[in-house]
Simulated scan of single mutants.
Amino acid sequence: MVRIQTTSARLCLLGIIFLLLAACSSKQTDISTPPTRSFEHAAGKTEVPVKPLRVASDQHMGQLLKLGIKPVAVRENMLKEAWIPYANLDEQALEGIEDLGGFPLNLEKLTLVEPDLIISALPNNQEQYSKIAPTVHIPYWSESYKTPMDKLLKIASLFDKTAVAENWIKEFEGKLADAQKKIADAGKLKEGQTVSVMAVFDKNVFVFGPNGAYGGYMIYDYLKLKPTDKVEELRNKDMGSAELSLEAVPEYMGDHAFITVVNEDKAKELLESDFWKSIPAVMNEQVYFYDSKIFAMDDPYSLEAQLDAIVNLLTGAK
C-alpha cells in the first residue's frame, strides 16, 4: 500500500515537472517569436511584428514622432530636419536616437541597434536592409499618395495608429479653415487671382503643381489657392512638377508667386534678368520667398510650419 502511494506521488510530481517545463518552453517561444502580420507596401508584402518596438528608418521621422513612435535610429539628415526648431518637441524627444549615416544606412550600425522593423524610402535599399530585419518600402513620393495625409495614414497603419493620425488630420483641417479665413480677410490675394509655386535649383527652376512638393500641396490642395492653367496641367505629372529654363519662368507665373531658393547663385541670375523684372507679379511686388528647407518635407511638423509661413506671407503677420 505504501509503495502504491509512493509511486503515485512520484508520478504526480513528474507530471507537475513536465507541465512546468512545457509552460517555460511556451513562454520562451512566445518571447523569441513575437506575433507577426502581413503588411503590404510599395515593394510587396512583408511579415512584420504586430507591435514593433525597435524601429529604424531612413525617412519619415516626423510622421513617426507625430504618431508617438520614437525610432531607435534614423538617417543622419533626419536629426537635423528644418522643422525641428518649429515643433516644440520635448527635450527628450530626439534623445538617444542613433545616427546611421546617409543613403543607404550604415549596415554595421544598423545591425548593432538590433531593429525589429526597418522602413526604407528607396527601393534599391530593400534587399540589404531585409537581411537585418523585416523591411517595408514607404517612398517619399508615390502616385498612391493623393496628399501627404495618405502617406501619414499608410505609416500609421503599420503601427495600428490610424486613430492617432485621423485625430491630427482633423485638428489640422481646423487650422486650415482658420488660415483660409485669415488670408481672405487680409485681402492681399484677390478673388480669382492665380498663384505659382517654384524652386530655384543648381541648373534650372522647377515649378510645382497640385500635390507637388515645395509647397504645392499646401498652397493648392490644402489652402485651395488657384493655380494658373499651365500649372494645373502638372496635377498628374510625376512629382507634380516640371523643370523650366529661366526663360520659361514667365509662362508659369501667376498673379502671385511663392519661390524657394535652393541655389543662391542661380537665383541671382534669375532675379537680375530683364525678363524677370518685366513679370507682372514681380512689378506688383507679389512674389514671396520662403525657406526651402521647411518646404522640402511633408511630415505633420513640416506641414504645420509651412501653413504658418504661407499665412504670414499673405497676411503680413510676423
Rank of each mutant, 00 (worst) to 15 (best):
V207L: 02
R235D: 02
D238P: 09
L223T: 06
N263I: 02
L244P: 02
I183Y: 03
Q180L: 03
D238W: 03
I279L: 06
G187C: 01
A163C: 10
E233N: 12
A242G: 06
E166C: 00
E243N: 13
E269F: 07
E233F: 09
D185T: 15
L189I: 13
L234A: 04
F289A: 06
K181S: 09
G240H: 02
E243V: 14
F206P: 02
M253D: 10
K181C: 07
F208M: 07
K230N: 14
F159K: 12
S245C: 03
D255F: 09
E264P: 08
V287F: 07
T194N: 11
V249F: 04
V195D: 00
R235V: 00
S273T: 14
V282A: 07
A177Q: 15
V200G: 02
A163H: 10
V205Y: 05
T260L: 13
L158E: 05
V195Q: 03
L189K: 12
A156K: 08
E243Q: 15
G215T: 01
D274E: 14
N211L: 02
P280T: 04
E166I: 08
I155S: 12
W168T: 11
L270K: 13
M218T: 04
V262A: 01
A156W: 08
F206T: 03
A177V: 14
E166F: 04
K226N: 14
L223W: 01
V205I: 13
I183G: 10
A186W: 11
K182C: 01
E251S: 13
G216K: 00
M218E: 07
V205H: 03
G192T: 00
V231T: 15
P280N: 07
V262P: 01
M253H: 09
A165L: 05
T162L: 11
A156F: 08
K190T: 06
E272R: 10
P227N: 04
T228M: 08
N204H: 09
N236H: 13
I219N: 06
E264K: 15
E171G: 11
F289V: 04
E285S: 12
I155E: 07
M253Y: 13
E285N: 15
A296M: 12
T194V: 12
R235P: 01
E191Q: 15
L244N: 02
Y220G: 00
D221W: 08
M218R: 00
N211A: 10
N284T: 10
G240Y: 00
V261T: 04
D265M: 11
F208N: 02
D255T: 13
V164W: 09
L246W: 02
M198C: 01
G254C: 15
V282F: 10
S292P: 04
M218C: 01
G254K: 14
D255I: 13
D265W: 08
G209F: 00
D238M: 13
D178Q: 14
Y220C: 02
S196H: 11
K224I: 06
A281S: 11
T194C: 05
L176G: 06
I183F: 05
I279M: 04
G215H: 06
A177L: 10
A213Y: 03
Q193W: 06
Y252P: 05
L234C: 12
F159W: 05
A186M: 10
K224H: 07
M253S: 11
I279V: 15
G192R: 04
K170L: 05
G216R: 05
A177G: 07
D255A: 08
G174D: 13
K170F: 12
